[in-house]
Design a binder for these strands. Structure first.
Lengths: 208, 208, 208, 208
DNA sequence: GATGAATGAGATTTCATTCAT
DNA sequence: AATGAATGAAATCTCATTCAT
């Protein structure tokens, strides 16, 4: 209860100001707690708050999405099945992030902090490992079944995630802009999922 | 001379520690200058150093690559021409980043700082605008010529960039890891460019 | 019952970490009470705990020793009687502290805290007054009886106490040291009492 | 210059409030420096300030005294020579501390902090080692020469130091007291040295 | 121009104490 | 009487920036 109120506040403040710009003062204030209370729930302080947020909210959310869309039980044996499944996955990600704007901000803007510190990077890799494994396994299954062209599955997974992240970055960039500088149409999850799925499955080349 | 020695030092230190972790002390030391001297060359201090670095090195490098591979003069009228041109582009990016590791680190891990501050974001969008416009225009040309399937060109540009960034992120992540946690094969620019081009142009679906 | 369980815990924790290093959290934990309960028994909090400990355990113990060895009723009329009595006193102190290591730690390392605060110093002086008076009176009696050389009795009392404290400090110092740095033989109360008594009564000068 | 101004301020503040009660704020204020300046001179912060103070001022002062009074070259072959030398030593200590009140306060009230931390204790033992060795060696020489009764020299050194410290503690205690609670006459270094020397060399026993 | 000592705002963190339950 | 979550004052320490030399 209290714990999640603190996490809510931390999520908002980290998303708005970034890890370094966020102050415990502001988090405590927004949570309507004293500063010291944070340390009762998260003795590790700022860093622990950040990690828990990533674990529970960022990765937790992504995992829920991937497990809903790409369970091991789902058949990916035909091109249509594969396309439908990955469409669901991409669409799920977009819906999830649309509904959790500040989680998205955390993911996009704060995850790269890990590149400056091996410990943080190790933590991140561990956190995202399950997620990546599930995605990669689904891709491999579809390839094994002959639905997808045989390729190294892990790089394909990175491409897929990179596609989603690329579009999301472009879209939240506009949130941060004063006005009309960026002309992207609003992100409509299902249309965007169609778009990504089409490019990725059918390729950019014109066909007759 | 001095100026670029300072920038070299700043590039290295920002890349290693991130914007917040970098100290002017260390930059000055590595540049073999006094701290005060930095302010003669970059009166705006740390923030200006960061901006100049992005402008001259990150964006400058990207622009050189895109202009080499996708000049307006290059014909993109047939699928093969388009494929070859974009392959050159991706390959150029990968080669550039392979040769400029710390620029890559800046691009991947420090650019997202912009999401926490509208001013910085505006700057970033301006800086990257030319680059994005050139990529987008090339895509649009190939579509207009019938080489590529007609789609909104800007989102496709974001996808393309996102693909490259996704793979690069995965690769520099392993640099930051203790050992053997991540099993990606070493990034070979031309093979990786083949891979990205194939997926993007032909799609993942198996074809007979 | 409860009260003394709390004092036991406080004694241990103060002895181990010093006044400032001790936390009520740890004291409560070791006493197996809630933190709030401490305030039911010792409304003055940390400071009161410390004072009570000094009064009941440090000074209380010292007073018991001095009253056993140097009661007003004990005859100190001859050199042998005086020597025996003070030997008993010193030996009693050493035995007491040997059996109460953490009381000793409190006495040696935490009493000096009083020097930083007149109120605490006043308290300390009051607490130790009875003890010092008894020692001083015994010395004065022995002097009046002609057993000891006439000298100002109070400074002699400080010397005597200082001797004991000096050796004790040297000995507990070795407890705190990593290994073999300090070469003092183990403190054997009766031998050490012999030693102190000999020096103090007979002097260091060689005699024939 | 600056460095010693900071040390002067730190000495005064530590002496007045003790290690824990002292704040860097107050030290900086008294030194008429900004807080940050302290860290230019003493990067280790409060702890380093404290260590340097002990090394340079407390131990440095004691070593100067002991080397002046008890150099290896001084003959301690007869009782009179020994008595004179140790009288000089005690008198030197008392003069030194009379002239350096806050150094005395540091020595008396802050050195015991070491008992709560092995690292600090190790440091203290190292710092005081040279001093103790010199005193002990002088005692041993006097014993070897037959001037003093043969006894273990190190414990005798602790007794001697303990005597001085005991009297000093009694005297600075009165400084901390409101008024007239403590009746010690003012400490007159040479008389007090006579007193200590007499007790220690001739013993307390009355002689005819 | 070059320097680096000085600065102090501002951040994180600790913990004695309170008080509603 | 017993509790321990909540509190926030207060402490240490960092570092971008200034400016006299």
């Amino acid at each position: 209860m209290r714990r999640s109120a603190i996490l809510d506040a931390a999520e908002a403040v980290f998303a708005e100001h970034g890890y370094n710009g966020a102050t415990l003062e502001e988090i405590a204030e927004r949570a309507e707690f004293g500063k010291g209370t944070l340390y009762n729930y998260f003795p590790g302080g700022k860093e622990e708050l950040y990690e828990v947020l990533f674990e529970e909210r960022v990765v937790g959310g992504l995992s829920a999405v991937v497990e809903a869309a790409l369970p091991d039980a789902r058949s990916l044996a035909t091109p249509d099945e594969a396309r439908a499944a990955f469409h669901d996955f991409v669409s799920g990600l977009l819906h999830h992030f649309e509904a959790n704007r500040s989680v998205l901000r955390l993911y996009i803007s704060e995850a790269p902090r890990a590149f400056n510190d091996p410990d943080r990077m190790t933590m991140m890799v561990r956190l995202f490992e399950g997620f990546m494994v599930t995605v990669t396994r689904a891709i491999a299954r579809a390839m094994d079944a002959g639905a997808l062209r045989p390729m190294p599955a892990l790089p394909v997974a990175h491409l897929l995630i990179g596609n989603v992240r690329g579009l999301l970055m472009a879209h939240i960039a506009s949130d941060c802009l004063p006005a009309g500088i960026h002309e992207l149409p609003p992100l409509v999850p299902d249309e965007t999922a169609d778009f990504i799925t089409t490019v990725l499955f059918d390729g950019l080349l014109a066909r007759d």
